[in-house]
Design a protein around this nucleic acid. Structure first.
Lengths: 162, 162
DNA sequence: TTAAATACGATAAATTTAGTCCTATTTATG
DNA sequence: CATAAATAGGACTAAATTTATCGTATTTAA
């Protein structure tokens, strides 16, 4: 549930690795594939997709490879997620195909799911690749105060369950 | 990407419907199934799972059905998600099976994914079923200020892409 | 000219999700 | 006390999605 796809993991891993070579030669898919034990052909596609979405630049031919097209701070997790797997959509109807949902006509959660979806996008837009690099807790969009508030709320529920 | 499962949609829909009958007789799976066009047998399983997780109470036999076991304000979206699909886990290793991940030994995103995962749990723990009922924007854990901040950040990225 | 690299469409394999089938048990009601 | 309507739940099938591979074309440094 809410699992990131392997392709997104590969993308995140690769972006951080590419950044490490910022001043050096572009990094090849094969290098990253070996370094992180990622299937080569699949990784190629992932990196190509990142290029199409202006997150990476590529150089073709021998000695070719990939480099960042902007700084880590200017790439959000949402950017990567949307680049690889398309728009984040909590439900099918948000994705536009309400025809494909048998609950659409009577649905009682559609509107609120749109709100949640919107907040979720803001959540992931607020996490930059630089944040992931520095593993920092504090730059994420949820303020410490809110965290505490929510954590308390959560514990309250847990008590009631157990 | 990040799509809620149909079972979770069914759970959320059902909880809100059950609440509408709070003072009346318990609601049957068949009633909800017809009202929202949800496959009956599957819905049954979903509701049974919610009972096992102390979100609903059930009454067996003729005139039986389901009722809330606590108020909407005391049920978070995270509660429902975890009840139906098990622990939220952004990655396989967070879910405990790092053996199943070929990147585990060399992974450069594992630690930060744990942080993101933690924040994400707080995010969904901060949304109650009462929030979903009232479709309110403002009770969600992301404060308006943070929203604005993030929205600006997001737009900045968008500009750079287009 | 060759070899190492990106680019990308098509397809196959694996996994997960969604839905069905079947049987058992509970209980209000005629 | 028999029946019908309801929950409970295991086993299985079908569908959809995700993951990975195959094959071919193009680019370019040496």
């Amino acid at each position: 549930m809410l699992r990131l796809s392997k392709k997104i993991e590969y993308a995140l891993i690769s972006i951080l690795e590419v950044e490490k070579h910022a001043n050096l030669e572009p990094v090849s898919a094969k290098f990253i594939s070996r370094r992180y034990n990622i299937p080569g052909e699949l990784l190629g596609k992932v990196l190509q997709t990142l290029v199409r979405n202006n997150i990476l630049n590529s150089v073709q031919g021998v000695k070719g490879g990939y480099a960042l097209s902007r700084s880590l701070g200017e790439i959000s997790m949402l950017d990567v997620m949307e680049a690889i797997d398309g728009p984040v959509a909590l439900t099918a109807c948000i994705d536009g195909d309400f025809n494909n949902c048998d609950q659409y006509p009577s649905c009682n959660i559609r509107v609120s799911m749109e709100v949640v979806q919107n907040d979720l996008e803001i959540f992931f837009a607020g996490i930059s690749m630089q944040d992931l690099k520095t593993k920092s807790n504090n730059i994420f969009i949820i303020s410490e105060m809110d965290k505490l508030k929510s954590a308390n709320k959560k514990n309250l529920f847990r008590e009631k369950i157990n």
